[in-house]
Nucleic acid binder design. Structure first.
Length: 271
DNA sequence: CATGACACCTGCTCGC
DNA sequence: TGCGAGCAGGTGTCAT
């Protein structure tokens, strides 16, 4: 569920409480969230380490530990993270880090699609290299976006492909394409220079505004402080199929023709 | 290498 | 009210 703005919000919320905290214990409630390691080995590697940095890459939350290992949380569809000192166990908790007097970091995941990884510096280098550029960094220019837009696949698929561009998921892909007046099914390589520039502005703009709004809560997403985001109230197309386009008044369309995912768009002004 | 189908999971909503 | 079908913000794997 969470895309870049949601994970960025969680990272910002958790940063003050987690930075400098010592991991006193690790509880893995659902071992399937680990890949290629056992709960015991994972716990052993983390116990006693201090959290040096709380950051984000693409849609993934990253804890940098004091031994330079990184712990990656992939929230996927329904994952969330929060710190609590409550004794009561969250029924959907899949993993918890005991941070002593700083409380417990809880990874909650109803659908249990999320995963947690521990990466060495070399593992991290390979991991981050597979991901595309960060759209909110200064270095992300229209020229960088142009490089992501090769091939005959639909432009919506291209901007959601994490190897081409990091952090954009279904909601913000729909929003950005509407803002840029581009038909989501257009071929990625077929966009003109002006269209690429408009799409670049739209992606950066909508992600920035969504971060400012602390993310979009449709259903499960919660910020790092457990609250819903506010950006759902400012979506122009996502979830509005059948309603009038805010720009031209024509009826918005909903299709699942692109990669079986809900695509909301205005057939009139996105052509 | 690009592409599409499918798997991974649970819960909610809708139509009958 | 009950029940099955369809749908959901993501990502990795496998066959073609």
């Amino acid at each position: 569920m969470p895309e870049l703005p949601e994970v960025e919000t969680i990272a910002r919320d958790l940063r003050p409480g987690l930075t400098g905290a010592r991991i006193a214990g690790v509880r893995v409630h659902r071992s399937h969230i680990l890949r290629q390691t056992t709960p015991a080995a994972f716990a052993r590697a983390l116990r006693g380490r201090r959290i040096a940095l709380v950051t984000r890459r693409a849609k993934h939350l990253v804890l940098v530990l004091d031994d330079d290992a990184r712990v990656i949380f992939q929230l996927r569809m329904t994952g969330s993270l929060y710190v609590t000192d409550a004794r009561r166990r969250d029924p959907y908790s899949v993993l918890e880090l005991d941070l002593g007097d700083r409380g417990h970091l809880v990874f909650r995941d109803v659908r249990r699609l999320g995963i947690v990884l521990r990466l060495t510096p070399a593992g991290w280098a390979a991991y981050t290299e597979r991901l595309g550029p960060e759209p909110l960094e200064r270095a992300f220019t229209a020229a960088k976006l142009a490089r992501a837009l090769s091939g005959r696949l639909a432009v919506k698929k291209a901007i959601m492909d994490q190897r081409r561009l990091a952090g954009v998921g279904n909601i913000y892909a729909n929003e950005a394409l509407w803002l840029a007046c581009i038909d989501p099914s257009r071929s990625a390589a077929g966009l003109g220079e002006g269209e690429i520039a408009a799409l670049h502005r739209s992606i950066v703009g909508v992600l920035r505004r969504a971060v400012r709004g602390r993310g979009t809560t449709i259903r499960d997403y919660r910020t790092g402080t457990g609250q819903p985001g506010t950006f759902q109230g400012r979506l122009a197309v996502y979830g509005r199929g059948g309603e009038p386009c805010l720009r031209c008044g024509h009826r918005l369309a909903l299709t699942h023709a692109i990669d079986q995912r809900a695509t909301h768009f205005c057939p009139w002004c996105q052509s």
